[in-house]
Design a binder for these strands. Structure first.
Lengths: 374, 374
DNA sequence: CCAAGTTCCGTTAACGTTTACGGTTCCGGT
DNA sequence: ACCGGAACCGTAAACGTTAACGGAACTTGG
């Protein structure tokens, strides 16, 4: 039920050459003539050669160095992403992964420098949050040319040569938010709002579009206003929302897709409409808990940062280990829905996981780099 | 930044003995005196020895044989569980896992025989759905005594010596169902119903309890009736629900936790109250789709069978590979919520995944056993 | 025509573990 | 005293890959 897998020796023998030559050919190392090389490649293909990773690791003993370039952020989102990455790194059987965290203190600040540092440091792979895809794109492209695979988390940098992307499905997020809000508000004729980081970011535009189209399709009584862009700046969010609330007296609900949800809630509270609004937020962090408990926030769309981190590292490691990777490089996670009812479940889980993060042994010598970026 | 890991040779040298003795001691193989054994174990501990899995696998080329004992089922649920297991098996770097499917044709039929077969076949690990925990418990205990780890999926067989359990969190499922239903129905005074497989099964009792307590806490206007037990028998479900609908004219909604949701929907339709009921179902399969699209089913709690399969195999493999396993053996997944809005996302994903299952190469020689159980 | 490269290729020693085999002791029975 | 056999232990060959070394053939410059 499956003959023994073909080895380098098999290829060498059936070609009348040596194991060293085969190895050089398969890794296009210098020292092998073009014709032998093609013969080796051909034979490897027909014999269905697949490298034995155990032997490779045992022999070369080199550890994969992976740089994780993410911002500190204003919530625990990125802490959880990093926790997921570390957890996944620990569970890799071959203990050959070393994670280097290049954590920037502010979103968008120092991203390019950190990425450059990773490239010049010749890491084997990079996980990055490209908060400004357009400015990062040339750097990612440069990494790809240096044969350093780059995996994006949370936001895509399309057309940059990046290896893959792990993010929450924007369509699923926006649509369920709309569907829930529509059901909650009921058949009244109202307007509903949405806040986004910036419509220039594909993901945010997609979320808006999904929200809007689902609303139009199932709840024509609700009219979606044009999005509020807050750039995760708390003051901006507060100011724009106060204005919005003042201008639209018929506002029935608001879907907050950004991290800066507390300022929006504060604005609603200050405007005296917190209890009249159906509010759906994004992600789950301590400041939100009391709003959910009290019912002011009816639901929050949890983007599963830990799962995003895990999948990103898995994708990268699989690519590096196999030298190619055969799976899809586009992971779209389904978001979780958190409400009053199941809130405790998620809180318990979060605290368990962050406890595990802290007690984690330093097996993989993953340590924050001395330098801080941003 | 981390000295080289200690090897068998290190232990042997610092003890003035040989590598073979150390190996025998660590695996309590015969041929080593009790005192040397304890000295070796002691030294291994102080040096912090951890076996090099790559070397182990390379040397002893033995493949792990894992038996997957699940029913065929009446929906695609178990197909997806099996798909997740195979997918995870394929993504294991060391390609040393062979999956044996012992699929029973009916739930609960032939489970014991299948488990016995796996044990006498001396597989290295077992993944099982214990539909009737009490009757399976002695068999699981027997497997444990034979040092065969057993992982339960979907339902726990507690106190049986099983290695671990992967299931959807019952509290999160029941609570979110209650919370949603409460919001959807609104402030009217109504009664709500729930169908379960059998209250004797812990998970189902827990789901009911979570549903009931969340409802009582947040929506005191809604009274939860005592559960309908249908044992996944379609006729039973239909009959009992018709009776329920006739007896409770003030019924506002029903939460169907079992696979037999279509008969319940049919009963509601035949009773002419399909449109007046807030219906929440469980899982996602073709027969449900049209009900969700039409809005008759407002939401369904998706138990992520694929993820359950993946996690179960991961847990088992980690245990087998490490010879111990250091992670928690209790995985409680958060269910996904599927509504009209995000339905298409899940359908697309399901079809992608089942397509991948079909085109899967037979790398791991995972084949259905000739014998069929049940 | 020889020294000095260059280009290609074969050989071999690792990597850490498992496993089979051989070699000591030491003991009880003839 | 000798043999048989435990009981304990050391040795060495695998497993498949990598990487360093060395050698052969062939080119070049003096």
């Amino acid at each position: 039920m499956g003959q023994p897998p073909t080895t380098l020796r098999d290829i060498a023998k059936s070609l009348g050459t040596s194991i060293g030559t085969v190895h050089r050919a398969l890794h296009d190392n210098p020292g092998v003539s073009p014709e032998t090389k093609s013969r080796v490649l051909q034979m490897a293909r027909t014999l269905g050669y697949r490298p034995n990773l155990a032997a490779r690791y045992l022999s070369s003993r080199k550890t994969l160095r992976i740089s994780v370039n993410t911002p500190q952020g204003t919530t625990s989102f990125w802490d959880e992403v990093r926790g997921g990455i570390r957890e996944e790194a620990d569970s890799i059987l071959l203990e050959n992964v070393e994670i280097q965290f290049r954590t920037g203190s502010l979103v968008g600040e120092g991203e390019e420098e950190a990425l450059e540092s990773a490239i010049t440091d010749k890491v084997d792979g990079i996980i990055i949050f490209p908060s400004r895809p357009q400015s990062l794109r040339p750097w990612i492209r440069r990494a790809s040319r240096a044969h350093i695979p780059v995996v994006c988390v949370a936001t895509d940098a399309s057309n940059s040569g990046r290896l893959g992307i792990v993010a929450v499905d924007t369509l699923a997020s926006g649509s369920i938010a709309a569907d829930l809000m529509g059901r909650f508000i009921g058949p009244l004729k109202k307007s509903v709002a949405i806040t986004v980081f910036d419509m220039a970011i594909t993901e945010h535009a997609e979320k808006y579009s999904a929200f809007e189209s689902t609303m139009a399709r199932f709840y024509p009584n609700l009219q979606v206003l044009k999005p509020v862009e807050d750039h995760d700046v708390e003051k901006e969010a507060y100011r724009k929302c106060r204005k919005l609330f003042a201008e639209h007296e018929d506002l029935g609900g608001i879907y907050i897709t950004t991290e800066a949800s507390v300022p929006v809630l504060q604005a609603a509270s200050d405007a005296g409409i917190l209890d009249h609004l159906t509010i759906i937020t994004t992600d789950l962090f301590p400041d939100l808990v009391s709003y959910i408990r009290s019912g002011a926030v009816v639901a929050t769309i949890y983007q599963r940062p830990r799962a995003q981190g895990q999948m990103a590292l898995r994708m990268l490691h699989e690519f590096l280990a196999e030298g190619g990777g055969r799976r899809s490089n586009q992971v779209a996670l389904a978001p979780h829905l958190v409400m009053r009812g199941n809130l405790e479940f998620f809180l318990r889980r979060q605290s368990q996981e962050s406890a595990k993060d802290k007690e984690r042994p330093v097996r993989n010598a993953s340590h924050a780099l001395a330098e801080e970026f941003g």
